[in-house]
Design a protein around this nucleic acid. Structure first.
Lengths: 253, 253
DNA sequence: TAACTAAGCGTCATTTTGACGCAAACTCTT
DNA sequence: AAGAGTTTGCGTCAAAATGACGCTTAGTTA
């Protein structure tokens, strides 16, 4: 079954993703033929997050003219190439559309409804990426009509099923804020407690008690206090760094 | 960098960090030619769990003769067919290899290393399934050389990268035991507290204090106490059911 | 020099957790 | 019929974690 090399050509998607009769019994049309193996394209799409203006932002690209989704907004992505792993494809596409490399990247979920793209059967593996500086993105005009940051909770209408991806990514991000040190990827290397707290409040969309938050984070021992301070209009604030910049699981909030 | 995909999935408890690949530069051979689009096959593979003999078991099938992996053990799965969603494919393949239908099924992670299957580029979407009765599985001799339950923590050598899937599934299962009501899918509809506790102890591989466990579970209000009791050699035990059989997120252990 | 504001430390009542004692209920044995 | 044996199930208590909030400190600005 695994070897069966059959029918080529893009299958024109079906209408909806509803579960077919019972549980998808192989359609043994006349007891001999089964539905042929699909040869979907495999894509990767990346939900890129950053903080800007005290808000959680999401980077979207505008699809270039030509397809049925021309002009619509979507997450940057593209098809997997020969010889690539999924991660590699995601990094390549992220680089191609934003010039970003070496960022935090995590696979989220795969979307495979054959009708998610009306023009072809495309299985898309969604990724989430985090950066500490929204300004680091350079819109790549070659591939897309444009790129722009949007407020995470107020995205425009998205192409394909990217709205579901967005939702999924946001949930995952929030969840990981509660039990990992993932926050470090959305902050500069050194930061004040106020900045860390504001980040948490922004992502979790709820106010945090300044003193309790500090106590908790400090009790976990994730941070290292630096000698330097940040001087501003008022009392200077101590700078901190995360001891570990690789993902760590912890009990947190 | 290409051995395993990055990402930590949505289960709590992984340690390793993400991949910061410097790899995956777009291979723009000479500015004109790019590596061609891959046309991988897309497979689904399902890690099926059940409890038997007080142990967590995993169902494996033995691959039939013919391929380079003939005779090896693997998780039941197969290629996505034309018109199918990933979930449908997973359900169809599970039905084909075990005669199981309508069970708890959850997508885990996608594996896309082009060399994971030495014979072809196959992107596999891993699923996890749970059943309450290992005996419900009927090995399907047509497709595989055989099928068998193995102890979750003592699996034989697996084909492809299925060992990684197994690890991933086990982590996910354990993680979800800590913060969801997923346990209900591994139990009969009605059960005693002792049974529930044993399930938790088995899956989490740690002893639980009987009294504290009871207190906590009851405090969450997930269970409904039934009028019936289970009578055995000693004091009869009250029977309980989960109020909700759909997945619910909760703070638990 | 005083006013102002964010930073940072500490207190206190309440809740949650972990460890464990013990009575209740039923069967089995004598 | 009585008592032994075992599992069920409720309760207690000290320690730890949590949430709400007061107050001092250390700078800048007026």
């Amino acid at each position: 079954m695994r070897a069966a090399e059959s029918g080529q050509g893009d299958f024109r998607g079906t209408k909806d993703g509803q579960i077919r009769g019972g549980s998808a019994a192989p359609r043994v049309a006349d007891g001999l033929r089964e539905t042929p193996i699909a040869r979907p394209k495999v894509a990767v799409d990346t939900v890129l997050f950053a903080i800007a203006g005290g808000r959680l932002k999401c980077y979207l690209v505008q699809l270039a003219a030509g397809g049925s989704v021309a002009g619509k907004w979507a997450f940057p992505g593209g098809l997997v190439r020969v010889g690539e792993t999924l991660d590699e494809a995601a990094r390549r596409e992220l680089l191609a559309s934003t010039r970003l490399s070496d960022r935090y990247l995590e696979q989220l979920f795969s979307f495979g409804d054959p009708s998610r793209d009306p023009t072809a059967h495309v299985v898309s593996v969604a990724y989430m990426a985090l950066i500490d500086d929204a300004g680091a993105v350079q819109a790549c005009s070659e591939k897309y009509a444009g790129g722009q940051w949007f407020e995470g909770s107020r995205l425009p209408t998205l192409a394909y099923d990217h709205a579901v991806m967005a939702d999924y990514a946001l949930r995952r991000l929030r969840a990981k804020f509660e039990y990992t040190n993932i926050a470090c990827h959305l902050l500069k290397r050194n930061f004040t407690f106020a900045e860390l707290e504001e980040l948490y409040a922004t992502v979790l969309e709820r106010p945090l008690d300044r003193r309790n938050f500090r106590r908790r984070i400090l009790a976990m021992g994730l941070l290292r206090r630096l000698a330097d301070q940040r001087r501003g209009a008022h009392r200077p604030a101590a700078l901190y760094t995360f001891r570990q910049h690789s993902l760590q699981m912890i009990e947190m909030l």
